[in-house]
Nucleic acid binder design. Structure first.
Length: 276
DNA sequence: ATGGTCGGCAACCGA
């Protein structure tokens, strides 16, 4: 039994055969080269059909594609020097791969799109925003507007589609460790939550929240705060959003606090959803 | 307690 199946059984889901499930995962790596052994190990143990990665932090010519191909996976990526960067690792060959909002070279490497197993996949690393009074905050709000436009012009809300990645917004008070104190801060500002809701209203469902109503479930812990992970001072910033036709096929979703990440501390952890 | 640590990459930036 795989870890994914064990986790599913622990969560009370019926134990289904692996072949019947499409396992989809996302992870902000904060450098794919630094986190490579952990990611390859995670793939071997969880055997997801798709793993979307953000903050790869390397140029395409420096991307460690061979390690994933050796592990039996396809990989496509869109990167730049030092910052940002996204990748899609998949068992099946991705089709119709597109990089960026419109294929232009002239923007931050934050989006990669592909079709896999009949599902439109959009993997994104949303701008963090830096500070509410920073131009980067407005850039972030504008980014959501551009993203909504992309959905409207290039996709159908009635077809199977996943929007995943580090979306850098905690949608609701239950998604941060201290909503009163954090209200108005970057990644939990009313304008960001409204911008995310505006994208969601196109026709997307929060797949993790569909299956987990409890508070205290996070995907990010700021490692600048001492003991944030052990004290669970976290935020739910990474998401798997799906159109209703696809969300109706979701069998479960869980956050995997990969213990090996303690060896090389990372702010984020793996988020997994399973579809029938 | 309002915290300070990563990664890239060669001085700080971004998170």
């Amino acid at each position: 039994m795989t870890q994914a199946q064990e986790a599913r059984r622990e969560r009370g889901h019926a134990l289904l055969t692996e072949a019947a499930l499409f396992t989809f995962a996302t992870f902000n790596a904060n450098s794919i080269r630094s986190r490579l052994p952990i990611i390859v190990d995670w793939l071997a143990r969880h055997k997801p059909d798709v793993l979307c990665v953000q903050e790869t932090k390397c140029r395409d010519e420096d991307f460690p594609a061979g390690a994933f191909r050796d592990a039996g996976y396809c990989v496509v990526f869109h990167g730049e020097k030092s910052y940002n960067g996204v990748a899609v690792i998949s068992r099946e060959e991705p089709q119709n791969v597109r990089r960026g909002f419109d294929g232009g070279d002239n923007e931050e490497a934050r989006i990669i799109r592909a079709t896999i197993a009949g599902i439109e996949i959009i993997n994104s690393y949303v701008p963090q925003g830096t500070a509410v009074d920073s131009p980067r905050f407005q850039y972030k709000l504008d980014w959501f507007k551009r993203f909504r436009h992309l959905l409207e012009t290039e996709y159908s809300a009635t077809a199977p589609l996943v929007w995943t990645g580090d979306l850098n917004v905690a949608p609701e008070p239950v998604d941060v460790y201290d909503p009163e104190r954090l209200e108005g801060s970057v990644c939990f500002h009313p304008l960001e939550r409204a911008a995310l809701r505006e994208v969601m209203s196109w026709g997307l469902v929060d797949v993790f929240r569909k299956h987990n109503s409890d508070a205290g479930q996070y995907t990010f812990w700021d490692y600048r705060i001492r003991g944030s992970l052990s004290r669970n001072l976290g935020w739910r910033l990474d998401h798997i959003m799906a159109t209703s036709t696809l969300a109706a096929r979701s069998a479960g979703a869980y956050i995997d606090r990969e213990p090996r990440l303690a060896e090389r501390p990372s702010d984020h952890t793996f988020l997994v959803a399973e579809f029938e």
